[in-house]
Amino acid sequence: MATILIAGGGIGGLAAAVAAAGRGHRAVVLERREGFTELGAGIQIGPNGFTALDRLGVGHEVRSLAVYIDELRFMDGTTGERVASMPLTGRYRARFGNPYAVVQRVDLYGPLLAACRTSPLIELRERSHVADYRQDAAGVTAILDDGGRVRGDALIGADGIRSAVRARLVGDGEPRVSGHTIYRSVIPMEQVPEELRWNTVTLWAGPGWHFVHYPIGGGRYLNLAATRDDGATRVVTGRPAAREHVLGEFPGLGETARRLLELGEDWREWVLCDRDPVGDWTDGRVVLLGDAAHPMLQYAAQGACMALEDAVTLGDLLDCGAGEFPQRFEKYNAARRERTGRTQLVARAMGELLYHPAGDEALARNRMLSALSDDDLHDKVSWLHGARDFARAAA
């Protein structure tokens, strides 16, 4: 039995711990914060995400907390026109083998955390911020920011977009600032007029902005996320934003969408960041996973799903002794980099080319999307949503 250190106790880190323990290894999760919890509001889970959750043994628990969405709806945010709708029931579920759902982040995190706490092979350590690492032929030492050291046979860096493990392994500096600011709010569903309580993920697209909303928390809340292409250059993380400011950032928003945006309370803002894809996430007995390996913008709604896929793929390769870890990590890296890199670039392109055009470009986009049949739309996402073999390169 080998000891695998995992930097980061988020969704990806816990999933990696479950996967490692499933292969009989001891996993030590080193989380920088005090306590294990997940911040944030809504998260979307595609069929590929549920396939991964089932492989990790927590699919049933997450399903019990999810809201199963009927369709992904794309609206013209200025005219209110419904441009396209992709059904997520019937043929979609039959084709991809699982539903599409939305949850509160804690409802995805909680079952993974429970699985970790009930496993005798998983140790959860809080206030253990991995700042660096050193390795030799026999293993890896995680160096904590307080000077502490933790020894193991391998280290998985699952410590997010500003990963300290990545900083040493890849050394590509700070994340790329997208120039987009997102404003988020969660409100009780009882405050939403009944005629606007749609069981959909709805996106309103406008010139230089878009607005997304969907139910979470078993339908008890409405998650609001409004994004402005404002050229932001400095990182902002969860700063309170005045309601008047948020409403003023979305000029031309149509009547129905404006009604929904005006319901928002206690807004907070983030400036979105990602990184360019890289080909190599390994350094001997050290490997990256999730946002540490391939951070992406939220526009394809696949960040968490990619981390879950990573964990399953890596777990499948850990049926070996510690001496084989470097070679197995290289196989994992080779298996995942094309698919995750493609997803990173698709997410970026969706924000730049699909959601924010104006004028004639917006009209052309609307014509293109409205001409697609249900099957056409399902074909467009089949490489992503329909994946069952996460180690296969994207087609």
Results as ranks from 00 to 15, higher is better:
V287M: 05
T200R: 13
D389H: 13
Q135H: 12
G42V: 03
A358E: 04
W383L: 09
G148C: 09
L169F: 07
G10D: 02
H210P: 00
Y100I: 13
T340A: 15
I143L: 15
W270T: 11
F250D: 00
A362C: 04
L88D: 03
Q344R: 03
R220C: 02
Q44D: 11
T202R: 11
E194D: 13
A17I: 09
V58S: 01
A242M: 00
T313A: 12
R91L: 14
N223Y: 10
F211Q: 05
I143R: 15
E34N: 14
R127C: 07
D276R: 09
A394S: 03
A27L: 06
Y68I: 14
V29E: 07
A131F: 08
L253M: 15
A292V: 10
G10Y: 05
P295H: 09
A27I: 07
A154Q: 03
V140T: 11
P99M: 05
H60R: 14
E71P: 00
L203R: 14
A322V: 04
L345K: 12
T3Q: 12
D76Q: 11
V29W: 05
E262N: 06
R339L: 03
A334G: 00
N366K: 11
D266A: 13
Y221N: 14
D319N: 10
A232E: 11
H180M: 15
H60S: 14
L56W: 09
C320K: 08
A167E: 15
A2W: 00
M368F: 15
R93G: 00
S373K: 04
A322N: 03
I6Y: 06
R134C: 11
R336E: 08
Y183N: 09
R151I: 14
V140S: 08
D376E: 08
G35K: 08
L113Y: 02
T89M: 11
V271A: 05
L297S: 03
P188G: 10
P326N: 09
A84E: 07
A2Q: 06
E338N: 01
A349G: 08
G386S: 04
E330F: 11
R365V: 04
H210A: 04
V186S: 11
V271N: 07
M75F: 13
S185W: 07
R33H: 13
R26M: 08
V312Y: 04
S382I: 03
E126S: 15
H385S: 07
Q327R: 15
R176H: 12
E71D: 12
A158T: 08
G279M: 06
G12N: 01
R168Y: 09
A335D: 13
L88P: 03
G148K: 10
A358Q: 07
P240V: 04
G46D: 04
L155S: 08
A225C: 12
N98H: 15
V236Q: 10
H60E: 15
A142L: 13
M296H: 02
W281C: 03
G218D: 05
D375W: 11
G110I: 01
T256S: 10
P215S: 04
L354F: 11
V346G: 00
I4H: 02
A19Y: 02
L384F: 14
L288N: 04
N366A: 09
G231P: 01
R339W: 08
A7K: 06
P277H: 02
T340D: 02
P357D: 01
L363T: 14
G9A: 02
V201I: 14
A292W: 12
G139H: 09
R162P: 00
